[in-house]
C-alpha cells in the first residue's frame, strides 16, 4: 500500500475498506415485506368497497388502519425489529410515516408533553408534511394556471 497523503486518497481508501450493505438480501426483504403491507392495504380497500363505501373513504380508512397497526407495533417495541429486517419495506409504506411520528413521541416523553411529545413528534415526519403539502399546493396552482378558462376564480 502507498502512503496516504490527501483527503481524497483517504476517502477512496476508506470507501474500499468499508463493507457494503448486503444489498441483495436487503432488497429481497424490502420487496416481500413492502409487498405484503400493500397487499394487506388492498384487502382492507376491497372489504370497504364490498361494504359499499366510496373510493375516497375506503382509501382513508385503509391509511388509518395501517397507521394504527404500525403505531401499535411501535408502542409494543416491535416495529424497530421489523424495520431492521425489512428496511425500506416497512419504511416506504404509510407504516413508516406512522412509525416516524410515534417513535419520537415516545422517546421525547421524558422532556414533557408540550416541548417533548408535542414538539419533537415531527422531528422525522415533519419534513414529509412540509414537502408533501407544499408540493401539492404547487401542483394545485400549476393546474389552475393551465386551466384558468374552465375554472371560475373565487
Amino acid at each position: 500500500m502507498e502512503k496516504i497523503e490527501t483527503n481524497k486518497q483517504y476517502q477512496d481508501y476508506v470507501d474500499k475498506k468499508s463493507p457494503n450493505s448486503p444489498i441483495l438480501k436487503n432488497c429481497f426483504n424490502a420487496f416481500w415485506v413492502g409487498g405484503l403491507i400493500c397487499t394487506i392495504g388492498q384487502l382492507i380497500l376491497d372489504i370497504c368497497a364490498y361494504r359499499g363505501l366510496n373510493e375516497e373513504v375506503s382509501g382513508t380508512i385503509t391509511s388509518i388502519i395501517l397507521i394504527g397497526i404500525s403505531a401499535f407495533l411501535t408502542g409494543l417495541n416491535l416495529f424497530n425489529r421489523i424495520g431492521k429486517f425489512a428496511g425500506a419495506g416497512s419504511l416506504i409504506p404509510i407504516t413508516g410515516f406512522s412509525n416516524s411520528i410515534v417513535s419520537p413521541a415516545m422517546e421525547y416523553k421524558s422532556e414533557g408533553y408540550i416541548m417533548g411529545v408535542g414538539a419533537k413528534m415531527f422531528t422525522v415526519a415533519g419534513p414529509v408534511l412540509v414537502f408533501g403539502i407544499s408540493a401539492s399546493i404547487l401542483v394545485g396552482i400549476v393546474y389552475l394556471i393551465f386551466n384558468t378558462q374552465s375554472i371560475t376564480l373565487v
Binding site: 468499508s18 463493507p19 416495529f79 424497530n80 421489523i82 431492521k84 417513535s103 422517546e107 422525522v124
Partner: peptide, 17 residues
C-alpha cells in the same frame, strides 16, 4: 442514539460500518 441519531423505536437499518 437519542442525541446523535434517531429515536430508539424508529425502524431503520444500521449500515455495516
Amino acid at each position: 442514539e437519542k442525541q446523535f441519531r434517531f429515536p430508539l423505536e424508529l425502524g431503520n437499518q444500521r449500515p455495516p460500518t
